[in-house]
Nucleic acid binder design. Structure first.
Lengths: 124, 124, 124, 124
DNA sequence: GTGGTCTAGACCACA
DNA sequence: GTGGTCTAGACCACA
């Protein structure tokens, strides 16, 4: 993880989005224990309040649950994860196509442009 | 133009990014006069200051220039526009591929996924 | 004359200071007729009001006088000119020495620094 | 610091230039904390906005950086500072020589004029 | 009528 | 307590 923040967005949001993405992309596994608030806070160089807030939004969305004394864990709800993954992927696709179209590319070219880009940058 | 703002980002930034995108995508033409500060403010339902701030970042980046008492205009610098367009397109491509890859898609599938999505949603 | 203005200062002031400097430095001679308001306005690309205002401040300071029907002329008051020239020169000297001193140069070095600069840049 | 403003120049610019000069001349040290927005505002007798604007131009030029909730600090970029100092000194020299030349002084006299002035005004 | 600057004052995010 | 954003509203320079 690298922790550089964009000044123009609340830090707690940037953190919760990052963790959410790691859960959705299964970089963090189902039932895996998350770092403690203190660990994350010191790692990211932010106040523990900020981490608390990030976690509580993840809990509210169901991506994280809390065992009173044992800490926080990635949800066991595999369905939520895969549903979110599909939703996110669809949104990425839609946004990509829409903005490329606005930038003047023909939709028909997009698959080959994508293909070319991948070939030339396989180590991205 | 529709003016709905995301609560998690400064309004002036959302406005300047929107206008920048319109310039880059040539929805707004070279040398075209932009709406006045007061017009935009009332249209977007924000204070004139907020618009001023949005414009001043566009001026600093060279996308907009100001004729003292006549108003503001889209840059004549066609090169800046096309360079920014290419940069933005490349970034979109890169981000799209990278996040799809993280979401578990094989890079090789992406062109055909894109192609299928376009066929099924051609009116979007 | 080149007419580029600094956005952060009233244009009429920039114009009157420029003309004043030309009078003091005797680039414009005693009793010499000045261009008309219209000429200057079109040359500088500004409104005639702006030129009027610049002239009236020059008149008030005595650098310019007005013959009702014949136009405006550089003052005949040679003493005012030479006094202003000395004052201005003294101010330049003082500001130069003071700011170089603040920038960390020893006052004693300044004559030789000046001398070196002149030798290396005689065509400035 | 004394806070008197020139009516013909935006206050925020006068403030940012003053601070910039203090940084370049190392009157303010690398990494030194600057007064808070509110302190400066009350000291200078201006609105906090005016100070914000002055600071934001200093940030953009890299002379100042901002720690989110801790305040603002002089850049650690010593190279930027010394480069700017040299540039400014050169500009002062050039302007001094050029305007003295226009005022009718021979360039060759300038070093001795400077030297004399310094001897007569050593306490200034 | 155009943009530019400034104020007083509110409220927010983060520590 | 730190900076950041936004508003309402005034007044200025220039055309």
């Amino acid at each position: 993880m690298s922790w550089s923040f964009d000044n123009n967005k609340p830090i707690y949001l940037q953190i919760s989005e990052k963790i959410k993405f790691q859960i959705i992309s299964q970089e963090l596994e189902t039932n895996q224990q998350l770092p403690t608030v203190r660990e994350l806070a010191s790692e990211a160089g932010v106040n523990t309040h900020t981490i608390q807030r990030a976690f509580s939004s993840l809990e509210q969305d169901g991506f994280v649950f809390c065992k009173r004394t044992a800490g926080r864990f990635v949800t066991e709800n595999q369905e939520l994860i895969s549903k979110s993954r599909k939703q996110l992927a669809k949104k990425q696709l839609k946004d990509f196509i829409s903005s490329m179209a606005h930038l003047g590319y023909q939709k028909e070219e997009l698959p080959s442009i994508t293909s070319n880009y991948i070939k030339q940058n396989w180590n991205y």
